[in-house]
Amino acid sequence: MIRLHRPLLLALTTALIAATAVLAVAQPSTAGPPPAPAAFKHPGVLVDKAQLDFARQQVLAGAQPQKAAYDAMKASSYADLAYTPKPRAIVECGSNSNPNYGCSDERNDALAAYTHALLWYITRDDRYAKKSIEIMDAWSAVLRDHTNSNAPLQTGWSGASFSRAGELIKHTYGGPWTQRVRFETMLRTIYLPEVRNGAGCKNGNWELIMTDAAIGIAVFLDDHAAFNKAISIWRGRLPGYIYETSDGADPKAPTTCPMDTRDEIVDYWQGQSTFTNGLAQETCRDFGHTGWGLTAATHVAETAWHQGVNLYGEAGKRLTDGYYFHTRLENGAAVPPDLCGGTVKLGLGAVTEIVYNHYHNRLGQQMPTTLAYTEAKRPAGANYFFAWETLTHANNPR
Protein backbone atom coordinates (compact mmCIF):
# COMPACT_ATOMS: atom_id res chain seq x y z
CA MET A 1 0.00 0.00 0.00
CA ILE A 2 1.23 3.49 -0.89
CA ARG A 3 0.99 5.89 2.01
CA LEU A 4 0.74 9.64 1.31
CA HIS A 5 2.00 12.21 3.74
CA ARG A 6 -0.83 14.31 5.13
CA PRO A 7 0.32 17.61 3.47
CA LEU A 8 0.52 15.89 0.08
CA LEU A 9 -2.87 14.25 0.58
CA LEU A 10 -4.45 17.60 1.44
CA ALA A 11 -2.86 19.22 -1.61
CA LEU A 12 -4.15 16.48 -3.92
CA THR A 13 -7.63 16.68 -2.41
CA THR A 14 -7.72 20.45 -2.86
CA ALA A 15 -6.60 20.13 -6.47
CA LEU A 16 -9.28 17.51 -7.17
CA ILE A 17 -12.01 19.74 -5.70
CA ALA A 18 -10.81 22.69 -7.78
CA ALA A 19 -10.72 20.63 -10.97
CA THR A 20 -14.23 19.34 -10.32
CA ALA A 21 -15.48 22.90 -9.85
CA VAL A 22 -13.91 24.01 -13.13
CA LEU A 23 -15.50 21.07 -14.94
CA ALA A 24 -18.89 21.92 -13.47
CA VAL A 25 -18.61 25.47 -14.79
CA ALA A 26 -17.39 24.36 -18.21
CA GLN A 27 -20.20 21.79 -18.62
CA PRO A 28 -23.43 23.37 -17.39
CA SER A 29 -26.14 20.93 -16.37
CA THR A 30 -29.35 20.82 -18.36
CA ALA A 31 -31.25 19.19 -15.50
CA GLY A 32 -32.66 22.51 -14.35
CA PRO A 33 -32.21 26.22 -14.86
CA PRO A 34 -29.00 27.75 -13.54
CA PRO A 35 -29.49 30.34 -10.86
CA ALA A 36 -30.12 33.85 -12.07
CA PRO A 37 -27.14 36.17 -11.58
CA ALA A 38 -26.77 37.67 -8.13
CA ALA A 39 -27.25 41.04 -9.76
CA PHE A 40 -28.73 41.58 -13.20
CA LYS A 41 -26.73 43.48 -15.80
CA HIS A 42 -28.46 46.66 -16.98
CA PRO A 43 -29.24 47.51 -19.67
CA GLY A 44 -29.46 43.87 -20.52
CA VAL A 45 -32.73 43.04 -22.25
CA LEU A 46 -31.78 41.93 -25.79
CA VAL A 47 -29.05 44.62 -26.00
CA ASP A 48 -26.41 45.80 -23.57
CA LYS A 49 -24.53 49.07 -23.25
CA ALA A 50 -21.52 47.94 -25.29
CA GLN A 51 -23.76 46.98 -28.21
CA LEU A 52 -25.68 50.24 -27.96
CA ASP A 53 -22.48 52.26 -27.86
CA PHE A 54 -21.14 50.45 -30.92
CA ALA A 55 -24.38 51.03 -32.84
CA ARG A 56 -24.34 54.71 -31.89
CA GLN A 57 -20.71 55.06 -32.94
CA GLN A 58 -21.46 53.44 -36.29
CA VAL A 59 -24.44 55.71 -36.95
CA LEU A 60 -22.56 58.89 -36.01
CA ALA A 61 -19.69 57.82 -38.28
CA GLY A 62 -22.08 57.06 -41.16
CA ALA A 63 -20.92 53.44 -41.22
CA GLN A 64 -23.00 50.66 -42.76
CA PRO A 65 -25.21 48.77 -42.27
CA GLN A 66 -26.11 50.72 -39.11
CA LYS A 67 -26.55 54.07 -40.84
CA ALA A 68 -29.09 52.68 -43.30
CA ALA A 69 -30.85 50.87 -40.46
CA TYR A 70 -31.00 54.05 -38.40
CA ASP A 71 -32.34 56.04 -41.35
CA ALA A 72 -35.07 53.45 -41.87
CA MET A 73 -36.00 53.58 -38.20
CA LYS A 74 -36.00 57.38 -38.16
CA ALA A 75 -38.28 57.47 -41.22
CA SER A 76 -40.81 55.02 -39.77
CA SER A 77 -44.13 56.01 -38.27
CA TYR A 78 -42.93 54.59 -34.93
CA ALA A 79 -40.33 57.37 -34.71
CA ASP A 80 -42.70 60.32 -35.14
CA LEU A 81 -42.39 62.75 -32.23
CA ALA A 82 -46.10 63.47 -32.73
CA TYR A 83 -46.90 59.78 -32.19
CA THR A 84 -50.05 59.41 -30.10
CA PRO A 85 -50.58 56.25 -28.05
CA LYS A 86 -53.99 54.58 -27.98
CA PRO A 87 -54.27 52.77 -24.64
CA ARG A 88 -57.36 51.01 -23.37
CA ALA A 89 -58.33 49.22 -20.19
CA ILE A 90 -59.20 45.86 -21.80
CA VAL A 91 -57.36 44.61 -24.87
CA GLU A 92 -59.47 41.89 -26.48
CA CYS A 93 -57.82 39.75 -29.13
CA GLY A 94 -59.40 36.70 -30.72
CA SER A 95 -57.80 34.24 -33.10
CA ASN A 96 -55.93 36.10 -35.85
CA SER A 97 -56.67 39.25 -33.83
CA ASN A 98 -60.38 38.97 -34.61
CA PRO A 99 -61.87 40.74 -32.78
CA ASN A 100 -59.16 43.37 -32.66
CA TYR A 101 -60.02 45.67 -29.78
CA GLY A 102 -56.75 47.40 -29.08
CA CYS A 103 -54.51 44.55 -30.29
CA SER A 104 -52.77 46.39 -33.13
CA ASP A 105 -52.72 49.60 -31.10
CA GLU A 106 -50.96 47.95 -28.17
CA ARG A 107 -48.37 46.19 -30.35
CA ASN A 108 -47.66 49.35 -32.31
CA ASP A 109 -47.42 51.49 -29.18
CA ALA A 110 -44.97 49.04 -27.59
CA LEU A 111 -42.83 49.07 -30.74
CA ALA A 112 -43.00 52.88 -30.80
CA ALA A 113 -41.89 53.07 -27.15
CA TYR A 114 -38.87 50.89 -27.96
CA THR A 115 -38.14 52.84 -31.14
CA HIS A 116 -38.11 56.15 -29.27
CA ALA A 117 -35.91 54.63 -26.55
CA LEU A 118 -33.37 53.60 -29.22
CA LEU A 119 -33.60 57.04 -30.83
CA TRP A 120 -32.91 58.62 -27.45
CA TYR A 121 -29.79 56.51 -27.03
CA ILE A 122 -28.44 57.25 -30.50
CA THR A 123 -29.24 60.98 -30.59
CA ARG A 124 -29.25 61.95 -26.89
CA ASP A 125 -32.28 64.07 -27.75
CA ASP A 126 -34.48 64.18 -24.62
CA ARG A 127 -37.61 64.47 -26.72
CA TYR A 128 -37.35 60.82 -27.73
CA ALA A 129 -36.93 59.61 -24.16
CA LYS A 130 -39.91 61.70 -23.10
CA LYS A 131 -42.02 60.28 -25.93
CA SER A 132 -41.10 56.72 -24.95
CA ILE A 133 -42.10 57.51 -21.37
CA GLU A 134 -45.33 59.12 -22.55
CA ILE A 135 -46.32 55.95 -24.39
CA MET A 136 -45.45 53.66 -21.48
CA ASP A 137 -47.24 55.92 -19.01
CA ALA A 138 -50.35 56.06 -21.17
CA TRP A 139 -50.71 52.28 -21.00
CA SER A 140 -49.79 51.86 -17.35
CA ALA A 141 -52.49 54.41 -16.44
CA VAL A 142 -55.38 52.40 -17.89
CA LEU A 143 -54.56 48.79 -18.85
CA ARG A 144 -56.27 46.16 -16.70
CA ASP A 145 -56.37 42.94 -18.72
CA HIS A 146 -55.93 41.01 -21.96
CA THR A 147 -58.88 38.82 -22.94
CA ASN A 148 -60.12 36.31 -25.54
CA SER A 149 -58.23 33.43 -27.15
CA ASN A 150 -55.13 35.33 -28.32
CA ALA A 151 -54.55 37.03 -24.97
CA PRO A 152 -51.34 35.11 -24.08
CA LEU A 153 -49.76 35.71 -27.49
CA GLN A 154 -50.83 39.36 -27.56
CA THR A 155 -49.32 39.84 -24.11
CA GLY A 156 -46.09 38.26 -25.35
CA TRP A 157 -45.87 40.44 -28.43
CA SER A 158 -46.41 43.67 -26.52
CA GLY A 159 -44.61 42.69 -23.34
CA ALA A 160 -41.42 41.89 -25.26
CA SER A 161 -41.21 45.39 -26.73
CA PHE A 162 -42.38 47.20 -23.59
CA SER A 163 -39.74 45.47 -21.46
CA ARG A 164 -36.99 46.55 -23.88
CA ALA A 165 -38.24 50.13 -23.91
CA GLY A 166 -38.53 50.28 -20.14
CA GLU A 167 -35.08 48.77 -19.69
CA LEU A 168 -33.38 51.35 -21.91
CA ILE A 169 -35.13 54.33 -20.38
CA LYS A 170 -34.70 53.16 -16.79
CA HIS A 171 -30.99 52.48 -17.14
CA THR A 172 -29.75 55.05 -19.68
CA TYR A 173 -31.93 58.14 -19.31
CA GLY A 174 -31.21 60.45 -16.40
CA GLY A 175 -34.35 62.54 -16.70
CA PRO A 176 -37.53 62.07 -14.67
CA TRP A 177 -39.86 59.12 -15.07
CA THR A 178 -42.31 59.78 -12.27
CA GLN A 179 -44.66 56.89 -13.14
CA ARG A 180 -41.96 54.26 -13.53
CA VAL A 181 -43.20 52.22 -10.56
CA ARG A 182 -46.68 52.19 -12.06
CA PHE A 183 -45.25 50.84 -15.33
CA GLU A 184 -43.29 48.21 -13.42
CA THR A 185 -46.45 47.20 -11.58
CA MET A 186 -48.28 46.83 -14.91
CA LEU A 187 -45.62 44.45 -16.24
CA ARG A 188 -45.51 42.53 -12.97
CA THR A 189 -49.24 42.09 -12.42
CA ILE A 190 -50.82 42.19 -15.89
CA TYR A 191 -48.16 40.94 -18.33
CA LEU A 192 -45.97 38.48 -16.45
CA PRO A 193 -48.75 36.24 -15.06
CA GLU A 194 -50.11 35.80 -18.59
CA VAL A 195 -46.81 34.64 -20.12
CA ARG A 196 -44.67 33.05 -17.43
CA ASN A 197 -46.08 29.48 -17.46
CA GLY A 198 -45.90 28.77 -21.18
CA ALA A 199 -48.53 27.96 -23.79
CA GLY A 200 -49.14 24.24 -23.42
CA CYS A 201 -50.01 22.58 -26.72
CA LYS A 202 -50.38 25.74 -28.78
CA ASN A 203 -48.04 26.03 -31.76
CA GLY A 204 -44.52 26.60 -30.52
CA ASN A 205 -44.14 30.22 -31.62
CA TRP A 206 -46.67 31.13 -28.91
CA GLU A 207 -44.61 29.79 -26.05
CA LEU A 208 -41.32 31.13 -27.38
CA ILE A 209 -42.76 34.62 -27.87
CA MET A 210 -44.32 34.53 -24.42
CA THR A 211 -40.98 33.42 -22.96
CA ASP A 212 -39.23 36.23 -24.81
CA ALA A 213 -41.50 38.67 -23.00
CA ALA A 214 -41.17 36.83 -19.69
CA ILE A 215 -37.37 36.92 -19.60
CA GLY A 216 -37.31 40.59 -20.65
CA ILE A 217 -39.78 41.51 -17.93
CA ALA A 218 -37.82 39.43 -15.40
CA VAL A 219 -34.59 41.32 -16.07
CA PHE A 220 -36.33 44.69 -16.09
CA LEU A 221 -37.97 43.90 -12.73
CA ASP A 222 -34.87 42.19 -11.27
CA ASP A 223 -37.08 39.14 -10.69
CA HIS A 224 -34.80 36.13 -10.23
CA ALA A 225 -37.59 33.56 -9.95
CA ALA A 226 -39.24 34.74 -13.17
CA PHE A 227 -35.86 34.68 -14.95
CA ASN A 228 -35.21 31.08 -13.93
CA LYS A 229 -38.74 30.09 -14.87
CA ALA A 230 -38.30 31.57 -18.36
CA ILE A 231 -35.09 29.61 -18.87
CA SER A 232 -36.82 26.42 -17.75
CA ILE A 233 -39.68 26.96 -20.22
CA TRP A 234 -37.20 27.69 -23.04
CA ARG A 235 -35.21 24.56 -22.30
CA GLY A 236 -38.33 22.45 -22.40
CA ARG A 237 -39.67 24.01 -25.60
CA LEU A 238 -36.64 24.34 -27.90
CA PRO A 239 -36.16 20.58 -28.51
CA GLY A 240 -39.91 20.40 -29.08
CA TYR A 241 -39.65 23.13 -31.74
CA ILE A 242 -36.45 22.38 -33.70
CA TYR A 243 -35.59 18.77 -34.48
CA GLU A 244 -32.13 17.20 -34.36
CA THR A 245 -31.43 13.57 -35.30
CA SER A 246 -29.83 13.15 -31.88
CA ASP A 247 -33.37 13.45 -30.45
CA GLY A 248 -34.23 10.01 -31.84
CA ALA A 249 -36.50 8.88 -34.63
CA ASP A 250 -39.15 11.47 -33.75
CA PRO A 251 -39.09 14.97 -32.25
CA LYS A 252 -39.36 15.39 -28.51
CA ALA A 253 -42.54 16.67 -26.93
CA PRO A 254 -42.36 20.09 -25.25
CA THR A 255 -42.36 19.83 -21.48
CA THR A 256 -45.54 21.91 -21.32
CA CYS A 257 -47.35 19.62 -23.78
CA PRO A 258 -46.79 15.93 -23.06
CA MET A 259 -47.45 13.57 -25.96
CA ASP A 260 -47.37 9.79 -25.76
CA THR A 261 -47.54 8.53 -29.34
CA ARG A 262 -45.91 9.07 -32.71
CA ASP A 263 -49.30 9.92 -34.21
CA GLU A 264 -49.64 12.80 -31.74
CA ILE A 265 -46.17 14.08 -32.63
CA VAL A 266 -46.80 13.89 -36.38
CA ASP A 267 -50.10 15.69 -36.01
CA TYR A 268 -48.47 18.40 -33.89
CA TRP A 269 -45.76 18.81 -36.53
CA GLN A 270 -48.38 19.70 -39.13
CA GLY A 271 -48.55 16.16 -40.56
CA GLN A 272 -44.83 15.92 -41.33
CA SER A 273 -43.69 12.33 -40.73
CA THR A 274 -40.04 12.45 -41.83
CA PHE A 275 -37.62 14.51 -39.81
CA THR A 276 -34.21 16.03 -40.47
CA ASN A 277 -31.88 18.43 -38.69
CA GLY A 278 -33.33 21.93 -38.44
CA LEU A 279 -36.94 21.10 -39.29
CA ALA A 280 -39.28 23.12 -37.09
CA GLN A 281 -42.64 22.23 -35.61
CA GLU A 282 -44.31 24.91 -37.77
CA THR A 283 -42.28 24.49 -40.98
CA CYS A 284 -45.18 22.83 -42.77
CA ARG A 285 -47.60 25.44 -41.45
CA ASP A 286 -45.70 28.39 -42.92
CA PHE A 287 -42.31 30.04 -42.65
CA GLY A 288 -43.75 33.24 -41.21
CA HIS A 289 -44.82 31.67 -37.92
CA THR A 290 -41.66 29.57 -37.95
CA GLY A 291 -39.58 32.74 -38.20
CA TRP A 292 -41.39 34.13 -35.17
CA GLY A 293 -40.57 30.99 -33.21
CA LEU A 294 -36.92 30.97 -34.25
CA THR A 295 -36.31 34.63 -33.50
CA ALA A 296 -38.17 34.51 -30.18
CA ALA A 297 -36.00 31.55 -29.14
CA THR A 298 -32.94 33.58 -30.14
CA HIS A 299 -34.14 36.63 -28.21
CA VAL A 300 -34.36 34.55 -25.03
CA ALA A 301 -30.84 33.22 -25.59
CA GLU A 302 -29.51 36.73 -26.26
CA THR A 303 -31.01 38.21 -23.10
CA ALA A 304 -29.74 35.24 -21.09
CA TRP A 305 -26.27 35.73 -22.64
CA HIS A 306 -26.14 39.29 -21.37
CA GLN A 307 -26.98 37.93 -17.92
CA GLY A 308 -24.21 35.33 -17.97
CA VAL A 309 -26.28 32.27 -18.91
CA ASN A 310 -25.15 30.57 -22.12
CA LEU A 311 -28.31 29.12 -23.64
CA TYR A 312 -26.67 29.49 -27.05
CA GLY A 313 -24.12 26.89 -25.96
CA GLU A 314 -26.81 24.57 -24.65
CA ALA A 315 -28.67 24.82 -27.95
CA GLY A 316 -25.64 23.40 -29.71
CA LYS A 317 -26.40 22.93 -33.41
CA ARG A 318 -30.15 23.18 -32.91
CA LEU A 319 -30.51 26.92 -33.48
CA THR A 320 -28.02 27.18 -36.35
CA ASP A 321 -29.52 24.14 -38.07
CA GLY A 322 -32.98 25.64 -37.72
CA TYR A 323 -31.94 28.84 -39.43
CA TYR A 324 -29.91 27.02 -42.10
CA PHE A 325 -32.80 24.70 -42.93
CA HIS A 326 -35.17 27.60 -43.58
CA THR A 327 -32.83 30.22 -45.09
CA ARG A 328 -31.55 27.63 -47.57
CA LEU A 329 -35.07 27.22 -48.92
CA GLU A 330 -35.69 30.97 -48.78
CA ASN A 331 -32.51 31.43 -50.86
CA GLY A 332 -33.94 29.23 -53.62
CA ALA A 333 -33.02 25.62 -52.82
CA ALA A 334 -35.45 23.02 -54.14
CA VAL A 335 -38.05 21.73 -51.70
CA PRO A 336 -37.54 18.01 -51.08
CA PRO A 337 -40.55 15.93 -52.12
CA ASP A 338 -40.86 14.47 -48.62
CA LEU A 339 -41.05 17.92 -46.98
CA CYS A 340 -44.59 19.23 -46.48
CA GLY A 341 -45.80 17.30 -49.52
CA GLY A 342 -43.22 19.07 -51.71
CA THR A 343 -44.60 22.58 -51.09
CA VAL A 344 -43.73 25.16 -48.45
CA LYS A 345 -45.05 28.63 -47.75
CA LEU A 346 -42.04 30.95 -47.65
CA GLY A 347 -41.77 34.27 -45.82
CA LEU A 348 -39.38 33.77 -42.90
CA GLY A 349 -38.96 37.50 -42.31
CA ALA A 350 -35.98 39.61 -41.22
CA VAL A 351 -35.23 37.43 -38.21
CA THR A 352 -31.59 36.35 -38.61
CA GLU A 353 -29.39 39.27 -37.48
CA ILE A 354 -29.04 38.24 -33.84
CA VAL A 355 -28.36 34.54 -34.37
CA TYR A 356 -25.82 35.31 -37.10
CA ASN A 357 -24.13 37.90 -34.92
CA HIS A 358 -23.70 35.45 -32.06
CA TYR A 359 -22.52 32.34 -33.84
CA HIS A 360 -20.45 34.08 -36.52
CA ASN A 361 -19.25 37.37 -35.05
CA ARG A 362 -18.82 36.19 -31.47
CA LEU A 363 -17.80 32.59 -32.06
CA GLY A 364 -16.37 32.59 -35.58
CA GLN A 365 -18.71 29.95 -37.00
CA GLN A 366 -19.19 30.08 -40.76
CA MET A 367 -22.84 30.53 -41.75
CA PRO A 368 -22.78 31.58 -45.43
CA THR A 369 -26.38 30.60 -46.17
CA THR A 370 -27.75 32.53 -43.21
CA LEU A 371 -25.46 35.47 -44.06
CA ALA A 372 -26.74 35.66 -47.65
CA TYR A 373 -30.31 35.73 -46.39
CA THR A 374 -29.48 38.27 -43.67
CA GLU A 375 -27.82 40.68 -46.09
CA ALA A 376 -30.76 40.41 -48.48
CA LYS A 377 -33.14 41.49 -45.69
CA ARG A 378 -31.15 44.50 -44.46
CA PRO A 379 -32.02 46.82 -42.96
CA ALA A 380 -34.37 44.82 -40.75
CA GLY A 381 -37.47 46.80 -39.77
CA ALA A 382 -40.08 46.42 -37.04
CA ASN A 383 -42.89 43.88 -36.84
CA TYR A 384 -45.08 42.61 -33.97
CA PHE A 385 -42.34 42.00 -31.35
CA PHE A 386 -38.96 42.50 -33.06
CA ALA A 387 -37.48 45.77 -34.26
CA TRP A 388 -34.38 47.36 -35.77
CA GLU A 389 -32.06 44.41 -35.26
CA THR A 390 -29.68 45.43 -38.05
CA LEU A 391 -29.10 48.62 -36.07
CA THR A 392 -28.54 46.86 -32.75
CA HIS A 393 -26.83 43.61 -33.74
CA ALA A 394 -25.27 43.68 -37.20
CA ASN A 395 -21.52 42.92 -36.95
CA ASN A 396 -21.76 43.72 -33.26
CA PRO A 397 -20.16 40.93 -31.17
CA ARG A 398 -19.95 42.97 -27.98
Rank of each mutant, 00 (worst) to 15 (best):
A225G: 11
G381R: 01
G271S: 09
E282N: 06
P28L: 04
P37I: 08
K130D: 04
N395F: 05
A315M: 00
E244C: 05
L339G: 05
I190G: 01
E302Q: 15
G198H: 07
F54I: 00
I231A: 06
T261N: 12
A213M: 12
Q365D: 07
R107T: 12
E302Y: 00
S140E: 12
E375A: 07
G349N: 01
K131Q: 15
L153S: 07
Y173E: 04
A249P: 07
A55Y: 07
N361K: 08
S149Q: 13
G308Y: 01
E134V: 03
A21H: 04
A89F: 00
S161W: 03
F40T: 04
V355W: 09
Y128E: 00
L153P: 10
G332H: 06
T189V: 09
G293P: 10
W120Q: 02
C340E: 07
A315W: 00
T155G: 08
R235P: 01
L52N: 06
R362P: 00
N98Q: 14
G156H: 05
Y356Q: 05
V335G: 03
Y373E: 02
L12E: 02
Y101F: 04
T30W: 08
G322Q: 08
D145M: 09
T283Y: 09
A160D: 13
W234H: 13
Q179F: 05
G341D: 11
R196T: 05
E134P: 03
I265W: 04
H360E: 12
A249W: 02
M210P: 02
R188Q: 15
K67T: 11
E194A: 14
P28Y: 07
A394S: 15
T255E: 10
R328V: 05
L81G: 09
R144E: 15
V300N: 05
S149L: 07
L319H: 02
G316H: 03
C93M: 04
I135L: 09
G381H: 03
G316W: 03
V91Q: 05
R262T: 13
H393N: 12
F385A: 14
E389K: 14
G316L: 06
I90N: 13
T369I: 13
D126W: 00
G271P: 05
P368C: 03
V59S: 09
